[in-house]
Amino acid sequence: MKKTTAINISETAKRTLQVEAAAINGLQQFIDHDFEQAVEIIARCAGRLVVTGIGKSAIIGQKIVATLNSTGTPALFMHAADAIHGDLGMIQQDDVVMCISKSGSSPEIKVLVPLVKSFGNPLIAMVGNTSSYLAREATLVLNTTVTQEACPNNLAPTTSTTAQLAMGDALAVCLIEWHGFTAADFAKFHPGGTLGKKLYLKVGDLSRHHQAPRVHLHSPLQEVILEISSKMLGVTAVLDEQEQLSGIITDGDLRRMLEKNIATDTVTAKDIMSTHPKVIQKDELAINALEKMRQHDITQLLVLEDKRYIGIIHLHDLIREGII
């Protein structure tokens, strides 16, 4: 399609965002008794929330279903057009149905609503016209009325679908709090990808892939160098006679010691180690190790099991796993 008029792209984009932001802010006035009842009905139902719609509202419905499923509320999507050709069988006795529509009067919606009601399931309408057929027939109404679309012709679903999406998020967040859904619960449903790893991957899962470099307080310099070099982590722990952690030596400590031009034949680990090394427990989340490294501007932490030294977690481990 050929461009026919000059536009100010930045101004158009900003105006679009302003219109949609105002619409979302305006939804606050529609958080009423019906909304509260909808949250309670969904939270208490023994089945699932079946979300349906047509056109752009159907796409929004699929996103809402995805959000609900990932946050502990069982949900499924049923396309309104397919429903009347067999997919109505998706609705079970204990389910709640939510129909999303801007107009509330689409032909498919008018056919679908009586069929859903004949099953006896509660019907929630997320609708942009509270005088519509869908709103009149529904058990509860979630009002997503907007004054205008961001589209310059006031036709393409833009502001209206944004409002539906935001109302769906409000519903989902209320259900998260209702069920006391935690980050640990979230991790169970998101085991893949970077997000999942941040929620479940632990320090011990990474440190076990390394050898645990160690020397003792009176280990000579040559032994310290060989241990750091052979384990290829740029660091070694220093243990006392009872195998308790006393300190840490990094390759940086070795360089600084050599710069002093001191006699190296009598140097032991105790002479060059840093006391009070930064440590982390093996059962802590790997993302916590990253935060600790950033806080102290270091690239590795000594890993403990209670008070016992068991290994190293390095910044490269976190990079490799996509935590960073």
Rank of each mutant, 00 (worst) to 15 (best):
D185F: 01
I272E: 01
A150G: 10
A6K: 14
V50D: 04
D306I: 06
L195I: 08
S131F: 02
K188T: 02
G180T: 05
A38S: 15
E177Q: 15
A269L: 06
D306R: 10
L302E: 05
T52I: 00
I59E: 13
A286P: 07
T4W: 12
V203M: 04
H216E: 15
L68M: 10
A187K: 08
H276R: 09
H314Y: 08
M257K: 12
A184V: 11
A166F: 09
V97S: 05
F35V: 02
V65I: 10
I225F: 09
H190M: 04
E40N: 14
I109C: 07
L258Q: 13
L233A: 08
D283Q: 12
Q222K: 15
Q242K: 12
G72K: 00
V141N: 11
G128C: 02
K278L: 13
I324D: 02
G86Q: 00
I228E: 02
V141H: 12
N154D: 13
T67R: 06
D271Y: 08
G26C: 08
L112T: 07
R308C: 14
H296P: 06
S219V: 06
A66T: 09
S106D: 14
F189L: 10
C45Q: 00
S207V: 03
D95Q: 02
A172Y: 10
N153R: 09
G234F: 06
L112R: 03
E291W: 15
L49W: 02
T250I: 01
D297R: 03
T16Y: 14
V96H: 13
K2Q: 11
A184E: 14
N8T: 08
G234M: 01
L68V: 09
Q37G: 04
L239T: 06
K270V: 06
H210N: 06
A75R: 00
M167F: 09
H79L: 06
T73M: 02
E227Q: 14
R136T: 04
E259S: 14
C174G: 00
G247Q: 04
G89P: 11
V267E: 10
T162E: 10
D169F: 15
N69E: 15
G86I: 00
V215R: 09
D251Y: 02
L315M: 15
T147D: 14
Y133D: 09
K2C: 09
T147G: 10
T268D: 05
V203W: 13
V146K: 05
Q92T: 01
D205G: 04
A81H: 10
E227K: 07
S106Q: 01
M126P: 07
V238R: 01
D253G: 05
A166S: 06
E291R: 08
A187E: 06
D283R: 00
Q62A: 03
I176E: 05
G196C: 01
T139Y: 04
D271G: 12
E305R: 11
I64V: 12
H316S: 13
L195S: 06
H316V: 15
E108K: 02
S103E: 03
I84A: 09
L142S: 03
M1P: 11
K292R: 15
S219E: 02
V96Q: 11
G89E: 02
A135T: 01
T159A: 08
I248C: 07
L76C: 07
L175D: 12
T266G: 13
K188R: 11
C45G: 05
S103G: 14
G86K: 00
M90Q: 04
H190G: 13
G47Y: 08
G53Y: 01
E11H: 13
